[in-house]
Design a protein around this nucleic acid. Sequence first.
DNA 1: TTGTATGCGTTATCAG
DNA 2: CTGATAACGCATACAA
Lengths: 335, 335
Amino acid sequence: MNPPTTRLTINEIAELVGVSKKTVSRFFNHPELLSAETRAKLEAVINQTGFVPNPQARALALQRSSLIVLVHDESDRGVLELVETAIGDALRGTELALVLQPITGRNSAGEMRAMLDRLRPMGVILLPARSDNQALVSACDHAQVRCIPLGQTREQQGMACDDRRAMAHLVTWLVKLGHRRIGLVSGPETSIIAQQRELGYLDSMADHGLDRGPSLIVPGDNTFDSGISAGRLLLEVSPRPTAVIACNDEMAAGVLHAAAHTGVSVPGQLSVVGFDDAPLATRTLPALTSMHIPWDRMAQEAVRRIASVEQAPVAGQRFDIELVLRDSVQPVTPS
Amino acid sequence: MNPPTTRLTINEIAELVGVSKKTVSRFFNHPELLSAETRAKLEAVINQTGFVPNPQARALALQRSSLIVLVHDESDRGVLELVETAIGDALRGTELALVLQPITGRNSAGEMRAMLDRLRPMGVILLPARSDNQALVSACDHAQVRCIPLGQTREQQGMACDDRRAMAHLVTWLVKLGHRRIGLVSGPETSIIAQQRELGYLDSMADHGLDRGPSLIVPGDNTFDSGISAGRLLLEVSPRPTAVIACNDEMAAGVLHAAAHTGVSVPGQLSVVGFDDAPLATRTLPALTSMHIPWDRMAQEAVRRIASVEQAPVAGQRFDIELVLRDSVQPVTPS
DNA sequence: TTGTATGCGTTATCAG
DNA sequence: CTGATAACGCATACAA
């Protein structure tokens, strides 16, 4: 059942079947080049012995390991959590393993190159806001490592959603509920996703002829604390917004806290909506209405692309965003 | 600065310095066996070129990779998040990388052996409730890889706290605040940590001569949902508890929800305290008073032990638990 | 379609 | 203290 002491090698399999080791190797890498007969014989023995090629040796010969690296910048634990779980599921029963690589410093390209050089991974998945960083993608290209950014990027590669359109729809929905003063807690300025969402907000506010003055837009950095600060600011503008959109759930939770500290009830006096639909959205009180970004599906598709043998450069793919209704939004009550 | 195209190998370093490759190898593995002179020459060239031994080749020769595996069962994201971050910090600037390995199935020992066999990691860190599973520790021992369970275990190995004593203190503290009816949402029955905490609760309740009937103890499984269910149950017992302790923050958040749905105000009518002091504890409303388990320090110490060259079997180490005061607890108000 | 020889970059053995 | 040589397990020319 399980190799008792020492593992089988390709040599022993070869001997067992009565072929050369190269033939065994081919069974794994180019099975189509084998005669049906030898293939069958090999398959039998390999299944029976449960032989698996040694990944370390493979890595040395191939200059490429069986690792998938998830690069993140620790700025958004919610997304990380979602993606981690999804990749874990996708990798179950696979030979592949997931490496978690925080890259936070200024010299991110350098850190990336060093990592690539050490791990020689099979592929890299970039999480926002690292997915924006074209230098990281280039580093992977240069190292011949497949790289898939998650979330919108300038180059439209990778797995992404149409954040601009989704945000516009969200604003329209709030307007239909009677909201006229809608605040926005935006994400990091340098983030393409944050930019797109802000544009969607501006689009839609303009469409509805609503005030979109700068005081209604407060920049955040995706952290809970920045959500609190932004929320405080937003609650001070007058007339006070009746709804606030935050670019992720962490910040939305921060807005909830700001409201509580200011004595503003949610959703009674203020509606709040987040982005990502992270686990946190269900933990808060009231539970957060949130835009569901299918991070899990994007991650799983990314894994598929990386694991696939196709040589073609991976084309981008688009996913839909859906609104998940919970308890933090209410129609405006006529006063 | 950075290797432009192809990496340097030990051979080229050897040639550059004018020694054999074995000598270069020794520089990294047994520097004490080199003459001060050769060592100095090597050091100069190695620093200058920034040469780093290829981990894949090293792994093949040594039968051991430069990976540290974090094994978890997805039951407690809060702890995972804390530990992940801490390990990330500890590994910064190191050659080591962190792989994330969920092990959830019934055949956990089998999955563990397969992983060990494939990755041949430098060390394994076990998170609760996987740290309880002696079979997993044995699998590591058998494979000669260093294994460090986090949190209390039957064998008192690894990094742990005195959960029983801490829980007893917590109960005493609540009693001093005037609480007499104190409910407990316990963890998974099979978890040593959960057992110890329950014992601590029982100890202390008995010491204070308080009712510790079974209705005040509701089992949970560390998930948010189980916290909600347990909270509902606890709020129905009469007379109603004035305080509830949950064995982790996720479940404590669930109790918060149960209270909200039942119209019981926290901390006004019900005090709630959690365990772990996970990020979630600050996100909830009210923010959770929680027992701070130093998961970060335990994880970093575990990494240190794994990375150290010492041959001695790693002895266990004890850490302190501290109460972190937030907004979910209040003294009992005389009615 | 299959086998032979060689390389991948490092470490360990055992001489000197 | 140091160096030639053989592992480590697999993959890729190239030849048969």
